[in-house]
């Protein structure tokens, strides 16, 4: 066998590609579902917390800040293991994919809150004064004057952070969630061949390279607004 054939035999074996193709596809479906769910709940929760914080009620702000700091400081995998192995011990049984969704949503929410909040405070105080002087209340000022301005500077960091958290869906493999990586590695040990692993890696590249490219495009598009 030539070197190239040997390489193909270990990493790109056609019959294995054919055999494990459905597994990888189902992994892709799981990854995408969890990713979308995480983006929706994470961003919504993050925005919700930032809005609450804008009321500047100390009793509510403190727990928000603590929550945000903790989830920005902890490695997501640590939290995933705590929740996944800890909850059953309390008699609460939730499946792995739900743990992954929950933890990643909380992580994204923490980062998103911080970004939304930075955006809100970056709008000059005169905007609040002007809006309130015309009789708008706090909620009206926030939603119709402040947030539309804040959102602009939030978009680039939010995009990057969202992509980063979404990539963490691969961590699900550690707790047996049937996402792409899990499908790839279990097929690899079943077949004794690296082909399924390569398929999984390629699937990630195919999904995330366009997303990252989109992210940098958004970053450039919005760049001129800053500075």
């Amino acid at each position: 066998m030539t070197g190239l054939e040997r390489f193909q035999d270990a990493f790109l074996k056609p019959e294995l590609i054919e055999r494990y193709w459905p597994d990888i596809v189902s992994g892709i479906a799981v990854t995408l579902q969890i990713a979308v769910a995480v983006v929706v709940t994470g961003l919504a929760l993050g925005l919700f917390l930032a809005v609450i914080r804008s009321y500047r009620i100390r009793l509510l702000n403190l727990p928000i800040i603590v929550f945000v700091d903790i989830f920005r400081a902890l490695p997501p995998l640590v939290v995933i293991l705590i929740v996944y192995f800890g909850l059953p011990n309390l008699g609460i049984n939730i499946p792995g994919f739900a743990v992954l969704w929950l933890v990643l949503s909380l992580v994204l929410a923490a980062f998103a809150e911080e970004i939304f909040w930075s955006g809100i405070v970056s709008v000059r105080k005169g905007q609040w004064d002007a809006a309130r002087s015309t009789g708008l209340d706090h909620w009206q000022t926030l939603t119709s004057v402040i947030l539309p301005q804040a959102i602009r500077i939030c978009v680039p960091p939010l995009t990057n952070r969202t992509i980063a958290v979404t990539k963490n869906t691969a961590l699900g493999t550690v707790i047996g969630v049937g996402e792409i990586m899990n499908q790839g590695t279990s097929a690899m040990s079943l077949s004794g061949n690296a082909t399924p692993l390569m398929m999984a890696a390629v699937a990630y590249v195919v999904i995330f390279v366009p997303v990252v490219a989109l992210g940098s495009w958004i970053e450039r598009r919005f760049a001129w607004k800053r500075a």
Binding site: L171, L197, V205
Partner: peptide, 23 residues
């Protein structure tokens, strides 16, 4: 840059640690 920012680090690590031995 685009490639390695796109690949989840865990995927990269497993490919290097468990995939490369096949080569």
């Amino acid at each position: 840059v685009d490639f390695f920012r796109a690949v989840p680090p865990l995927v990269l690590l497993i490919v290097i640690y468990s995939g490369l031995p096949f080569a």
